Amino acid sequence: MAMTLLEDWCKGMDVNSQRALLVWGIPVNCDEAEIKETLQAAMPQVPYRVLGRMFWREENAKAALLELTGAVDYTAIPREMPGKGGVWKVVFKPPTSDAEFLERLHLFLAREGWTVQDVARVLGFQNPTPAPIPDMRAEMLNYILHNVIPPLVESIGYRKLTLFSGRDILGPGEETFDPWLEHTNEVIKEWQVSDVEKRRRLMESLRGPAADVIRIFKTSNPAITTAKCLKALEQAFGSVESFRDAQVRFLNTYQKPGEKVSAYVIRLEPLLKKVVEKGAIDKDNVNRARLEQVIVGANHSGALQRLWLTAVAEGPTPNLFQLLVQIREGEAEEEEAEAVLLQLGLKGPL
């Protein structure tokens, strides 16, 4: 509904909907001065002008339409802001990849006191014969070409993070912390961009209290790294499970009836990772701890699997991949043997 209102309002005022914000949830008794003060406090770095206000009957509250008047860092636009009567919500259309590229390029140039025309002139696009480039501008151009353009290009079509807010009641598309953190760590490893760009993308995935936590940390430390942002979120929203609790949970996790040993090993791995993170198991002993728990926790049905586990226990300790390969080979051999028995009319375990 809010997005539809934004688009319809923009059409009625001949405004580009991708250059507009809709702020709603404003109490009816909130006057113009209070609205202005709230917007300035929540978006000090965002250039805008208020185009109009209206009463939104379905929400029994006011809504305001804002037009962006300059280059904007969209990560600086909050989805929610504290205001009179509670939380005011902000809706805007995420820019397309091309629009985002140009927006961020304009933003960078504005910060450096340059314009797109300056870059074109330096590159010689406005003169038949390119003029000699002053040393300072040549250095600036080199910086743009090597440090600004590549990250902008790489950011188009990148794999985005899922949403996390830290609220007890999840909103559309949001996840609880542990699955979100696991997915985030996996995706961040894929991004071949600077840490500043990683932090910007991380902020895109945060809402509500989670976004507030990082904003507070950035206020005291503007250069905070992505790793420290994730650590701060883990301290604020992560599990408070002690290292002893994590260890007990790991040691008391067994193979379920009907579950393959390979599936059991995969299910065991996040618990082992948590135990290592808590310091209950040294990183150098991870492979041995995994193998010992598999030997203890697996239902060793079948003579072939028992023989296989004994051989593994006596040989070099395999890593996770090696262990899974050996287990899958053992399972395949046992399935093949069982198929032969079924063909012969014999039933029952080996």
Rank of each mutant, 00 (worst) to 15 (best):
L107Y: 06
L107T: 02
L107S: 06
F108A: 09
F108V: 10
F108T: 09
F108W: 15
L109W: 09
A110F: 07
A110R: 14
A110N: 15
A110M: 12
R111A: 14
R111Y: 11
R111N: 13
E112A: 15
E112Y: 10
G113L: 10
W114A: 14
W114N: 07
T115A: 05
T115V: 06
V116Y: 06
V116A: 13
D118F: 10
D118H: 12
D118P: 03
D118E: 11
D118Y: 09
V119G: 03
V119S: 04
V119I: 15
A120R: 07
A120V: 06
R121H: 12
R121W: 08
R121P: 03
R121N: 14
R121S: 12
V122E: 10
V122P: 03
V122K: 05
L123T: 00
L123I: 00
F125L: 05
F125I: 02
F125G: 01
F125W: 13
F125Q: 02
F125D: 01
Q126N: 14
Q126R: 08
Q126E: 15
N127H: 12
N127R: 07
N127F: 05
N127K: 08
N127W: 05
P128L: 15
P128S: 08
T129H: 12
T129Y: 12
T129M: 13
T129Q: 14
P130L: 01
P130Q: 04
P130I: 03
A131N: 09
A131K: 12
P132R: 09
P132S: 09
P132L: 09
I133P: 03
I133Y: 02
P134W: 00
P134L: 00
M136H: 10
M136A: 13
M136Y: 11
M136G: 04
R137N: 10
R137V: 07
R137W: 06
R137P: 01
R137G: 02
R137I: 05
R137M: 10
A138F: 12
A138S: 11
A138V: 04
A138N: 12
A138W: 13
A138P: 03
E139V: 04
M140G: 10
M140I: 08
M140P: 03
M140F: 13
M140Y: 10
L141G: 03
L141F: 04
N142Q: 14
N142E: 15
N142L: 14
N142P: 03
Y143Q: 00
Y143T: 00
Y143P: 00
Y143V: 00
Y143N: 01
Y143L: 01
Y143W: 04
I144K: 00
L145G: 06
H146T: 14
H146S: 13
H146W: 07
H146C: 07
N147Q: 14
N147D: 11
V148C: 04
V148Y: 06
I149R: 05
I149K: 06
P150Q: 02
P150F: 01
P150K: 01
P150N: 02
P151M: 04
L152S: 07
L152R: 05
L152A: 12
L152H: 07
L152W: 08
V153S: 10
E154A: 15
E154V: 07
E154Y: 11
S155H: 12
G157R: 01
G157V: 00
G157T: 00
G157Q: 00
G157E: 01
G157H: 03
Y158E: 01
R159T: 06
R159N: 04
R159D: 01
K160W: 08
K160L: 04
